[in-house]
Design a protein around this nucleic acid. Sequence first.
DNA 1: GTCTATATAATGATAGAC
DNA 2: GTCTATCATTATATAGAC
Lengths: 213, 213
Amino acid sequence: MTKQDKNKKTYSSGEKAILEAAEILFAEKGFDAVSMSAIAKMANTSKPNIYHHFKNKNDLYMATMETAVRRSAMLLDTLESSPGSPGQHLSDFAAGQLKNILEHKNSTQLILREALMTSSENARVIAENVVGNVFSRLTAMVEQGQKEGQFRKDIDPTLAAFMMEAANMFFFQARPVMKQIPEANFNDDIAAYSKGVMDIIFNGMLLNEEKKS
Amino acid sequence: MTKQDKNKKTYSSGEKAILEAAEILFAEKGFDAVSMSAIAKMANTSKPNIYHHFKNKNDLYMATMETAVRRSAMLLDTLESSPGSPGQHLSDFAAGQLKNILEHKNSTQLILREALMTSSENARVIAENVVGNVFSRLTAMVEQGQKEGQFRKDIDPTLAAFMMEAANMFFFQARPVMKQIPEANFNDDIAAYSKGVMDIIFNGMLLNEEKKS
DNA sequence: GTCTATATAATGATAGAC
DNA sequence: GTCTATCATTATATAGAC
């Protein structure tokens, strides 16, 4: 089976409706809080029909995860190397990733839920690969910037990468909460948010005369 | 009822055992994935006895949340203003909060779960207050630093505060995943992690000659 | 306060007709 | 492929004895 075939796996229109409903519900409430009846209802079909297409609830969940991961991997590929300095790359990557995250909330939430919460074990392994993948790419970009003399060599590249991922992921996760906090003015303009984050990470908060290095 | 009374609310030893078990299980698996039988088993008692002490499952959940929130509020109070510059305050706060977070994982996870995931609505409101509380304090510290001329005035204080909270919260959440990624070397030394984060936030990643401001 | 036993409803899953 | 009807299990919750 070639690499391309692996990404083909077609679904019938009925299956697609089921998967779509499952993705929304699982992402929203989590595995245990979602009943097969609820999925059937949302997909405008019957419970036995779901069991006709998927072996059991866990099987459906894994299939849902799989499509989410596939979408996430495709999105990551589109963020691949544009021309520019490592710093520019990092900014583009962070902004692009945040945009993608918000454009595919269900996939993101599903993957994050599995990656962060301890639950179904084999689904978690899949989710960890996605998260780890992003993390590796960011780390490599930071290291490249250090090699080229753009970044300080005394910072831990993995830590810098982690901070950027944290800024994006936590922004996504905390969004419902933050919308309730009027003081936070970065909610409505994600481009400005991403720009502000990278400004601090690159230039720091301190005034010039206070900087140490 | 005075403010002190509000924080007293005593529980019998039997109730404490139930609450303790409930906190661990709810934090680990979430509301729907935990059965009353499982809680009873873990608390070494029977299901009807839980119903003797708590009206229903949701009532027990809310009581569990309440104790977690109370603990979190107490911890926040201990982080109050030590002497030093706003920058020093922020560093201390970030380091102290991270330490507390890791010392009370169950409470933290319970609150974060409610605050971040859309679930039981009234529990979410409580959790948001806790998160919002931390956020407000951090924002105030940043503003103070700007007023005193330590920090750049062109950065958004709420954004800077959010980044610090993101670094702490996401560190906690992502810990299971990060432990699987050997490249990340900041896992075992949380003091070093916190120091590294604040170094980047204060001084930035760029080398001196590359800095803009 | 704590238990055994049980009522009641919902869940995951299947049989079998069309 | 899709359904109605149903099974077996487990869940929340309660009655009532001690």
